[in-house]
Design a protein around this nucleic acid. Sequence first.
DNA 1: CAACGGACCTGCCTGC
DNA 2: TGCAGGCAGGTCCGTT
Length: 271
Amino acid sequence: MPELPEVETTRRGLLPWLQRAKISDVIIRQRQLRWPIPRNLKQLLTGQTVVDIHRRGKYLVFDFDAGHMLVHLGMSGSLRIVDDTAEIRKHDHIDWRLDSGKILRFHDPRRFGSVHWIKQNPLEHPLLNDLGPEPLEDGFTGEYLHARSRKRNAAVKNFIMDSHIVVGVGNIYASESLFLAGIHPRKAAGKVSLERYIKLADAIKSVLNASITQGGTTLRDFVNESGNPGYFRQRLRVYEREGEPCLLCESKIKRVVIGQRASYFCAQCQS
DNA sequence: CAACGGACCTGCCTGC
DNA sequence: TGCAGGCAGGTCCGTT
């Protein structure tokens, strides 16, 4: 499910409900996610107050006085604010009960999501300390992509989906960005020119920002903190549009598999 | 190192 | 109706 825009949408939606909220209880119904939930999560969090919520790549970082909780939504995860009257559905794995009476509820059918605890600097967590730059921040440029890609033979689509190169670009936005930049997804990363990487970096920023504005993309599972979908799906130019006309040249959008992931592009507009 | 396939899971859709 | 197979917003890990 969630790529950067969906995680950011979740963060923004949760913040007003969670900032300065105190955790009164933690209920864990399923410990086996991508990694087991820390056994002492309940003891760590009960009585703690949420100070702030940040995002690093696709991780949400919840700050408490005692440390930081990291949450990854995997492919199908979502975090919602509900109250006591909401029925507990299948795959509602964790509830964080708040003093306010509200509940933060983690739902994840595929269980690729995860929850972690780190006492000190969250950026030093092994899952975060080697991540690439944030695509919406200044350190992310075409020059950077060009420099990192030299001698790399992998498809440029795989290259920009590598979180050690740049975070937050998943399968949807990789296809969308490459379309905007006019680059064929199979082209070797090391053979893309600086000029085109500058276009690509701009395309990534603009696609991610546009999606955040629409509350993200909902293909199947994604819902925001209120249980509502995102609306960027209607704006997708190539993703899941196989056989439909390219919005620029009207030739048929193609679907191919690159690195075991579906990839969509226009053979006329992308080279 | 870089690249690739497999692994982790469930649900839903298609076709026989 | 049932069942097998394929596919889905991720990403770590082990093997080449």
